[in-house]
Every structure is written in C-alpha cells, then in structure tokens.
Design a protein around this nucleic acid. Structure first.
Ligand code: MN
Ligand code: MN
Ligand code: ZN
Ligand code: ZN
Lengths: 141, 141
DNA sequence: TATAAATTTGCAATCGTTACAAATCTGAAA
DNA sequence: TTTCAGATTTGTAACGATTGCAAATTTATA
C-alpha cells in the first residue's frame, strides 16, 4: 500500500540513515508507488534525474535500508528481486500476464502453527500468482 | 512432507515423463527427503552415483518436472532456488541459523481476498523465516 | 581552508542459470 | 542383429543479476 510519509528525509534520519540525494530519491520511489520495483526499475527511473547514478549505489542503498528495517525483499519470482517500503504484513499477488505485483490485506491474524512452537518468527510472506481481473477480461481466461 | 510414492517410475510415466536413470534419481531425492534441495544439492548428492551427470541435466529435468506439475519452486530466499515434490498447499519455514527449510500445515482454508475478486489464482506460497526451536536452544535467542 | 570520514562510482569478478550443439542412449524397423 | 531416427544427456560458452573493491567525489569537522 501507499505509504503516507510527510518528510522522507526525517523518516530516514529517524532510522539512523543520513539522507543523501540518492537515498532520498531511491526511498521515494519505493514509498510513493505501488509498484514493488526491481533494482533495474529504480535505476532506470532515476537515471535521467541523477545521470551519474551507479547501479551499485542502488544495490548498496537497498541493502542499507534492509539493515535498518525500512524495506523488505519480495521473492515472489526466482528471477526478479523486488523491494517494498511497506514492511507491515500484507500479501502480494503477481499477475503472470501483465507482470504487475499488487498488495492485498490479510484479513484475520496469522494462525499459530503447532509444529513451529518454540521457533522465533521474524518474517512472513504470503505470495499468490495467477491472472489479474483486468488481464482475464482483456484476454480469455 | 514426505511423499509416499511406491513406484517412482510409474509416477513419472503417469505424468507423461519417460523415467530415465537421471530423472528417476533426481525425483527420488526430491520425494524421499524433507530437505527442499537446491540444484547444487541435488547435483552434489548424485555425482558419486552418476559420475557423468551434468548440472545442465539437473536444471533441464527440474524444468521438465515443473512443466508437468510434479514439482514446485520455493523462492523463500533470493539467492537460492529450492524445489519441492510436494505440490499441495503447505507453508515453509526457513531457519536463518541452521539454514533448514521445513514444512508446516496451514490449518484453515485460505481466506477469500476481497481485492482479488475476479482474479484467477494458480499458485500460493506462504513463507516464514526466523530461528528454529533447536537453534534457539543451542544458541541464545 | 585543510583534513578526515562518509558516500558514491565504475569496473572486474562471481555465481546461478540458460542456450546450444555435439555426444550418447533408446527403441523400433529392417 | 544391425541400422537409424528421435529422445536424452552432456559440456561449454554466454548471459544477467549481484557483489567486491579501490578510486573518485562529497560532506562534515577542525
Ligand atoms: Mn507490498
Ligand atoms: Mn515443502
Ligand atoms: Zn494482469
Ligand atoms: Zn535452525
């Protein structure tokens, strides 16, 4: 979901990250869109605006954000790593036709898994794949 | 979970796959263990037994199994693709300490997601990460 | 302004995966 | 059994995403 962050610079500073231009812009792309971009996406979007930007910086910055808990990694597909600035528990649906990855809320709270008693859960991901409503109408399925 | 397949050759044949030695052995590793192996794991395990085995064959065979619905891909980690011969809906928990990926049952049926109405769901994955009970005892957490 | 620390950059290296063509195997026809 | 076509496997090269690393640049501090 779209994060409502009034001051991105302050948001980063509160997390212990100095807000450079690169960091600000990269985080804004993550926070102010629904798209769950890949490194390539982010790099392509920012290149015109920051012509000197290095792809390595995008990688480094995302790793930094991760370490500070500002982004989560989405591994819904094995050949594309996506990033999400919304770290709250929510589901992701990928349409295999248009390729979009969208969010959905998980209604009820997570069930207690008997066999995991004694384990410490630090991350949970719920991924669905299929064909979105729009693509079903446009095509056939 | 451990699949109880009495005759692996027949199981493959029923799926429309000719059971070569390589295919048999690769499928057995997937079906007769809980480990959710990577390509590397499978290759390393089979190399002594089939010294001529090529890693390409492991890749090709897993892709073939996928196409026939015999295995599912587990993308719980972005740097390791794992495979599972149990294609029924169940959850996966990865311990960040020992690295093991274990199964767990999902108690209740999947909730109907309002925002996905009209979509066709073909795959669902539920991934948890954390520290398993054994590792918590052995270490500190 | 001078200097040190932090950050960014570019490029080479690495790793998992795929493309592709040659080699090998298998099974049926002669 | 021998021959041959098709299926399968293999090895190697190529590819793309990610990382390592050292130089260049920017920012903060004295
Ligand atoms: Mn999301
Ligand atoms: Mn499993
Ligand atoms: Zn779609
Ligand atoms: Zn463990």
């Amino acid at each position: 979901m779209l994060l409502k962050i009034e001051n991105v610079g302050q948001y980063l500073r509160d997390a212990g990250i100095k807000p450079s231009i690169q960091r600000l812009k990269i985080f804004e792309i993550l926070a102010k869109s629904y798209e769950h971009p890949t490194v390539e996406n982010i790099y392509t979007q920012l290149s015109p605006e920051i012509p000197t930007l290095s792809k390595t910086t995008v990688y480094n910055t995302l790793k930094l954000f991760q370490k500070h808990g500002l982004v989560m990694v989405i591994n819904i597909e094995d050949n594309e790593t996506r990033y999400d600035a919304d770290t709250s528990f929510h589901g992701h649906f990928k349409c295999n036709v248009c390729g979009k990855v969208s969010d959905f809320n998980i209604p009820n709270t997570q069930p207690l898994i008997e066999s995991l008693k004694g384990s410490l859960i630090t991350e949970s991901h719920y991924y669905l794949k299929g064909i979105c409503a729009e693509c079903r109408l446009r095509t056939d399925n």
